[in-house]
Simulated scan of single mutants.
Amino acid sequence: MTHIRQNFGVDFKKIRENKSYTQQYVAQDAMARSTYTKFEMGNIVPTITKYFQILNNLDMTHEEFNYIHNDYQLKGKDAILYQFRTMAVNTDISILINVRETTKNYLTEHKDNIVQDIFYICNALITLSKTNDLTQAASYAEKVWHRISQLDKWYLTELRLLNNILFFFDFDTSLFISKRALIELEHYSHFHEATALKMAYSMNLIYLLMENKNYEQALEKADSLILLSKEKERYRILGVLYVRKGIILTKLAKNTEAEVWIQKGFNLLEAIEDFPLKKELDKEVLYYLNHS
């Protein structure tokens, strides 16, 4: 049976005492109280199954416990994954370069598919930023897709990776990834993080459909995502959706309705003072309205 490699007993004891839990309470369904006492003293190491049961009795996840164990700091791969999530909402090249160096250093001592993928993604984004050469940048993104495309199932980590490189691929590949990702995410209806990913993929799918001039389907997806954005109170996304719905309606020759939706989106973004996003959407409106 698999055992955890480190002795966490001292930390478990501190947490238990801070919560005013007895050893009997924390040990229930995992092991005898006398055995748990030995674990807190560092005399034994529990199996993975028992470790997770004890954590459950302490009302704590492995991620939180590991963070506490490391003196409330992220280390190694955990730090890289956190930096990667920061990348998803901030494309500042200095951040990308920093993450790339961190992953490069980590990979000199560890073999890890996910960290390797993050390294490739950083290279793709940095190359595109510096050269504007999509073909050159895509060569890195394709390494990530080559690995993940061979998997029978995608989990949240793989879905996050793909969401960062979706637009490096041709339309058909991007559309396939988006649709499959949304199917995979249906299994995670009770995960908060999955909701954010679902919204990101749905937004990307709307953009792809617009680029392919499939405006009827884009409108259907936009209306669905508008309802979800309202429910989750994601006003930044809602502002973008209103503007894009207006663009779509223009393309469908429903100009009167279109103007209302575009202005509604801009008003919302002004209300939350996201002026940089409003500026980008101004360009998007001009792009679509000036192209047949």
Rank of each mutant, 00 (worst) to 15 (best):
G9Q: 05
K19L: 15
T22L: 05
V26N: 10
A30L: 09
R33V: 15
T35I: 12
Y36L: 12
K38H: 09
T49D: 15
M60D: 04
T61K: 05
E63N: 10
E64G: 02
E64A: 02
I68K: 08
Y72H: 00
K75N: 10
I93E: 09
S94P: 00
I97G: 00
E101W: 00
T102K: 10
T102I: 00
L107P: 12
D112E: 14
N113I: 11
I121L: 07
L125S: 01
L125G: 00
L134I: 13
A137M: 03
Y140T: 02
Y140M: 01
E142R: 07
Y155I: 12
N163F: 11
I165L: 08
I165K: 08
F168C: 01
D172I: 03
I177N: 02
A181F: 08
I183K: 14
I183D: 12
E184P: 13
E186N: 13
Y188R: 04
H190P: 01
H192G: 01
H192V: 05
L197N: 04
N212W: 10
K213D: 06
Y215N: 03
Y215M: 02
L219R: 02
K230L: 12
K232D: 13
L238Q: 06
L241W: 14
Y242M: 12
Y242K: 14
E259S: 07
V260W: 00
W261L: 07
I262G: 07
L277V: 08
K278A: 15
K283I: 09
Y287S: 08
